[in-house]
Design a protein around this nucleic acid. Structure first.
Lengths: 185, 185
DNA sequence: GTCTATAGTGGGATAGAC
DNA sequence: GTCTATCCCACTATAGAC
């Protein structure tokens, strides 16, 4: 696999993102970490936006890989396995996670299927019920962002809230499957 | 009620926040909207941070008022009434909402009880179960931030996801109340 | 593919006069 | 309580030489 200069630039941007947050990713800082000057970067990439898109695309691949591994574990409750993987990955890559979720997805500029693959694992864990999958995603996203922002009160039992939320939604999926008239599909 | 110059400054900052987002709240812009120069602001406030704290405190009061009104409506499902009020308020004040949730709360600098009052209404709607209340909060926060960031796919039924999530958690509260050994309180 | 020089824009905050 | 003048900082991006 050949590593182009562009790849090195994206890689350096990713390291800066996780080390110093979004504000730490400046063209100057990227260049400095490669031992060159900022204007030289523009021979390899069009602008900063292109860099962000590349980082986001990479994040989706990483996330989907984590989901795949979690489901392969053969857990009793797939949704809980996905939830654990979701939380772990987000907490391990806080700034990339926020970059991926804080703004509209540049869907036109992302490689084909990159978002869909991640979504598919979540949907699979919730019996294909899209409303439940979206509710579960929103719950997980809320838990992760509140934890990352340190917004829970100091005494909050975060693990217990995770269990409560996922169990509630899973129970609801099971209930609507036994009661097909509530099914939308 | 006397309106001090400081109050006018905070008010102007709040208007700019909702009109132009967080980046639109600059000392220069605040001053301009009051017809003075930026350096004059520092005779009334210490720095920009003090301004943000004042906006956040005000946001909590507004939010709690909205919750109070929603519960007073005498809804069949109090948790759904709170959820609707949560969504409506956040969508009506997107930038203030993000200011209040994107960073650690400056609890030491906030007026006493301002956070607690908002929390109390949510807790009340969920029978005092803290884990369920936190799960519900995280769900609502996730739904709101994903909607504000325009992160749901274009075809997503957002209202259905709200119903699914809240109903799931409410059902879980009811279940654990009939099954006291699962109760933590 | 790298460099220097620089344009253009914007920000928070202070000193000291009035 | 307001002003002018100013400091110091930072950023993205381009032009043109080598």
């Amino acid at each position: 696999m050949i590593v182009t200069r562009r790849d090195e630039i994206v890689e350096a941007a990713g390291v800066l993102l996780e080390q110093h947050g979004r504000d730490g990713v400046t063209m100057r800082a990227i260049a400095e970490s490669l031992g060159i000057r900022a204007p030289s970067l523009y021979k390899h990439i069009a602008d900063k936006h292109e860099l962000e898109v590349a980082l986001i695309a990479d994040g989706f691949v990483q996330q989907a890989d984590a989901f795949e591994k979690a489901l392969a574990g053969g857990n009793d409750v797939p949704a809980m396995a996905i939830a654990d993987a979701y939380r772990t990955w987000a907490l391990d890559h806080p700034h990339l996670y926020r970059l991926m979720t804080d703004q509209p997805l540049p869907r036109d500029e992302l490689p084909e299927g990159v978002e869909e693959r991640s979504v598919a694992y979540v949907l699979e864990a919730l019996a294909g019920d899209r409303d439940c999958a979206r509710a579960a995603w929103a719950f997980a996203h809320g838990m992760v962002t509140l934890e990352l922002a340190d917004r829970f009160p100091p005494d909050a039992d975060i693990a217990a809230a995770w269990r409560t939320g996922i169990e509630s939604i899973v129970a609801n999926v099971a209930a609507t499957q036994n009661d097909p008239q509530g099914d939308q599909k």
